[in-house]
């Protein structure tokens, strides 16, 4: 028994070391004095202050946050609608095709999504002069795969929700829309929050799709990072990475605790 325990702990330690050492090394070397990322030359925060002066990078970050925010809102609406159809509309003719179409973007290589959407946008632009490639096309493209993730999250919540709660509300005189807003929505709300955060992150993280569908005026943060990384290791990117890791860790921790509590409260 205890031999197995030790094996289990070793496996977990090694596995998490594999997952976390790269991230930790990024943070450590972001405080390195030297430009050569792997040679330690003393503690310094100068890369952070340089980062704060990098107008281009900050501009790209702001653009990415804007796109991520709008994409997340759009994706939550679309993904929730899709989840409702998949779980509740048992007899809808659109259910089956929607099921396949929602699953596909989850695994579809982003390079395919990127190219195919670009070709669509180019054709549309030729046809009717709209949409101009830039922020809008990136949001449209991101929401196409983000909504699939939102659907998965909301769907699993809807499936586990007791159907008779909605029937009870209807039985007490509430019309379907009112049932949705007073009963269904509050109960699946945590999954909507999780889906929103997921969609936001996916958008903030995307390089490939944005590279295809974005226009000359709209360079997102990952596009900026990529062009900088291609030239080699740069301590400024380390500093940026550390900030992202910190923000994400804190956000995930808070979200995790909140959801854990909610879960506990709702489970009788």
């Amino acid at each position: 028994m205890s031999k197995l325990r030790w094996l289990q702990i070793t496996v977990l330690l090694l596995g998490f070391a594999f997952l976390y050492i790269p991230m930790i090394s990024l943070i450590v070397y972001s405080f390195n004095e030297s430009r050569l990322v792997t040679v330690w030359a003393g503690f310094s925060t100068k890369w952070y202050s340089e980062l704060m002066d990098n107008r281009q990078l900050l501009g790209a970050a702001w653009l990415s946050i804007k796109i991520g925010f709008l994409n997340a809102c759009l994706s939550v609406i679309l993904g929730t609608l899709a989840a409702i159809v998949l779980v509740r509309f048992r007899r809808s003719r659109m259910r089956k095709p929607l099921d396949v179409m929602v699953a596909a973007p989850l695994v579809m290589p982003d390079i395919i999504i990127g190219l195919s959407l670009l070709l669509l946008f180019v054709s549309l632009e030729n046809l009717m002069g709209w949409p101009e490639r830039g922020q809008l096309t990136v949001i449209l493209a991101h929401s196409t795969f983000s909504m699939a993730y939102v659907t998965v999250v909301v769907r699993s919540r809807l499936v586990s929700m007791d159907r008779s709660l909605e029937e009870a509300a209807m039985d007490l005189g509430a019309r379907p829309l009112w049932v949705f807003f007073t009963v269904t929505l509050p109960i699946i709300a945590p999954s909507l929050v999780a889906g929103w955060l997921l969609a936001f992150t996916l958008s903030m993280d995307d390089l490939v799709v944005a590279s295809f569908v974005s226009g000359p005026g709209a360079t997102t943060l990952p596009m900026m990072v990529y062009s900088s990384v291609r030239l080699g290791v740069s301590p400024q990117i380390n500093a940026l990475a550390s900030i992202i890791i910190l923000v994400v860790s804190v956000a995930v921790l808070i979200a995790g605790i909140l959801m854990y509590r909610q879960e506990k409260r709702l489970r009788h």
Binding site: D162, S164, L165, E167, A168, A169, M170, D171, L172, G173, A174, R175, V183, P186, I187, R265, L266, H268
Partner: peptide
């Protein structure tokens, strides 16, 4: 007549109390 317009009310097996 839809459920919400009927003069009947139901007590559910699972009770279906709104958890929130």
């Amino acid at each position: 007549v839809p459920a919400y317009a009927r003069p009947v009310n139901m007590m559910f097996q699972s009770y279906a109390l709104f958890p929130h």
